[in-house]
């Protein structure tokens, strides 16, 4: 658990972070979102003491971080950044092994851990372990960056726009990867981004920051339903809010289930795990008012009507 109590940071006369309080519960994925210069990165970097806060208190599992040795603290916290910062003179395996080595793990355990992480991030060890960072694509390098952040098996993971420099398709697949890993490992993650869609997709809780202050913090659903200020509404995309909200709900929630198991559906159909946004798009594209819904095996399990979509409840 991470707690920030009335934390401020000023650089000379300018105040970057102004009296914020925030609690990130264990196993929560908390996303700090805001425009550039709003203090979200500064907040993140104060948690592992890359920047020292000037007022207030930051506690990890109840312990104030200024009581801890900064290097020991950082070795306990995973850290991944946008420009990745892989060490160009070391191989992928050596890069991932940085923190375990700093922690003084025995060599066999490190080797095992590196293999494990390469496997977890879908980078076959035989192919990637011996490569150097300049031989990787952007997406591969960022996977190594995430693996490196996870290497010391930290409870807490800090991620500063880690997917910011990637193309949309790679970014999307890495976001899915992160959700999969998080479902498996249940770390406490603080994630910084300026992209509200990314925040909505990943977060358990979104913290919107503006000019060094927290303007609103809530679940993605609640945030969409009740933006506190015009700034938050603007970040949420104004008129596209409806679509974004639809993007957070699954087809399974609104479909009308079949009483008896149906047949395999040929042609356009929705999956139970698709979002309502995808459902609406498919209806618009097919110019129809209802679509069959199928399960993982392609067997029809229900029907979704456009009316349910509009009312927000099954028909």
């Amino acid at each position: 658990m991470i707690e920030l109590l009335n934390v401020s940071k000023s650089f000379g006369p300018s105040v970057a972070v102004d009296d914020i309080s925030l609690t990130v519960k264990a196993a929560e994925l908390c996303v700090l979102v805001g425009t550039s210069g709003c203090g979200k990165s500064t907040t993140l970097r104060m948690i592992n003491r890359l920047i020292a806060h000037t007022a207030g208190q930051i506690r990890i599992d109840g312990q104030a971080i200024d009581q801890l040795d900064p290097h020991t603290l950082r070795r306990r916290i995973g850290y991944a950044i946008q420009s990745i910062g892989l060490f160009p003179h070391w191989t992928v395996a050596r890069n991932i092994a940085v923190v375990p080595r700093l922690l003084g793990w025995p060599a066999p355990r490190i080797a095992q851990r590196v293999d494990e992480l390469l496997h977890l991030l879908d980078l076959p060890a035989a192919e990637f372990a011996g490569k150097y960072p300049n031989q990787l694509s952007g997406g591969q390098a960022q996977r190594v960056g995430v693996a490196r952040a996870l290497a010391g098996d930290p409870e807490i993971l800090l991620m500063d726009e880690p997917f910011g420099a990637l193309d949309p398709i790679t970014r999307d697949s890495l976001q899915n990867e992160l959700l999969r890993i998080q479902a498996q490992l249940r770390k406490t993650i603080v994630f910084v981004t300026h992209d509200m869609d990314e925040a909505l997709k990943l977060a358990n809780r979104i913290v919107v920051m503006e000019k060094g202050r927290i303007v609103q913090q809530d679940t993605p659903q609640a945030l969409l339903a009740r933006p506190a200020t015009a700034f938050v509404e603007n970040l949420l995309g104004g008129q596209e809010r409806g679509l974004k909200q639809a993007g957070l709900q699954r087809v399974a929630a609104l479909m009308q289930p079949l009483n008896a198991p149906g047949l395999r559906v040929v042609g356009p159909a929705l999956k139970t795990a698709d979002s309502l946004r995808q459902a609406l798009s498919l209806m618009l594209w097919q110019r129809c008012t209802s679509l069959p819904v199928v399960d993982e095996q392609g067997v029809q399990v229900g029907v979704l009507h456009v009316d349910s979509l509009l009312r927000g409840a099954p028909q």
Partner: peptide, 13 residues
């Protein structure tokens, strides 16, 4: 590169 140094500090070196 500054990001490499930042990462090194962030890893706890």
């Amino acid at each position: 590169e500054p990001s490499v140094i930042d990462a090194a500090h962030g890893m706890g070196m």
